[in-house]
Amino acid sequence: MSNVPAMTEATPLPDEPSALRRFLRMLWADKFALAALIFLVVVVLMALLGPVLLGDVAQKQNLRGRNAPPFEWDRGWLWWMGADSLGRPLLARIIVAARNTMTVAAGAVIFSALIGTTLGLIAGYASRRVGEAIMRVADVIMSFPSLLLAVIVLYILGPSVTNVVIVLAITRIPVYLRTTRAEVLEIRERMFVSAARVMGASPRRIVLRHILPVVLPTLMTIATLDFAYVMLAESALSFLGIGIQPPEITWGLMIAQGKEHLTRAWWLSFWPGLAIILTTLSLNLLSNWMRIALDPTQRWRLEMRGRSHG
């Protein structure tokens, strides 16, 4: 707070530019966040268009090109990253696998975040008894080995993208629930919440308008970190044969399949691993940028940077 220049009565008020322009300018000011956004757009495009354009190439076996090393330019750009143990071009497979990977990871993260946050808000703001009940349910989920839960549920329901999403979402709910509740318990005692209560604001309004916006940045950071966790958990399930089933592919599954060839053909696991790392890193950078850009008291940091170096 002390770093923000104090306004006096006489400070002139410049005109505020439109919201969109401000955001674009703040994005421009943070080059890392800009690069992250571009990368994520590419990943999303891959997920949307990849299977349509490259679906056949990615599945076609080519026994003469088994474990073909990367950077052999004469084979054509699809072979640029090398090929897997059945001679399928890795680049094409990564692009095609983006859809399943994103569906599973985004689906699981979004569902667990939504449910966990909602329950956390209720547990934090509702009566003590309701809060305790919700917390005990969370304790049960947390104390149960998540992989065992996944094995049982997927064994009963049968492996499919939807079921993997459901299982992963359930196991990740407590993370959001506990964080949200802890923050709500602190924020509900703040004075602006008291001020809203004095005005007669309903609990719903207080929670959604006054408490949730303060919790959201923390949750967003957790969600981006969870993205990587979920991708790897999915590959573990796939490795056990109860996750995504070949010939469907995901990045996690590609890593698992490459594992046995790791000493001879490192690129089998390396490229999908790099894709996972870059995606999580981008999400993290972007969420970091959003945390600052969405906070009116911090925004000046980005706006300043844009002005002095841009």
Binding site: M1, R190, M191, F192, S194, A195, A196, V198, M199, G200, H210, P213, V214, D295, P296, T297
Partner: peptide, 17 residues
């Protein structure tokens, strides 16, 4: 509506967002 309150520290009683 009839009864209102002004708090000690306006930094904390106004939602910063």
């Amino acid at each position: 509506r009839d009864l209102q309150m002004v708090f000690q520290d306006p930094t904390q009683s106004l939602n910063p967002r």
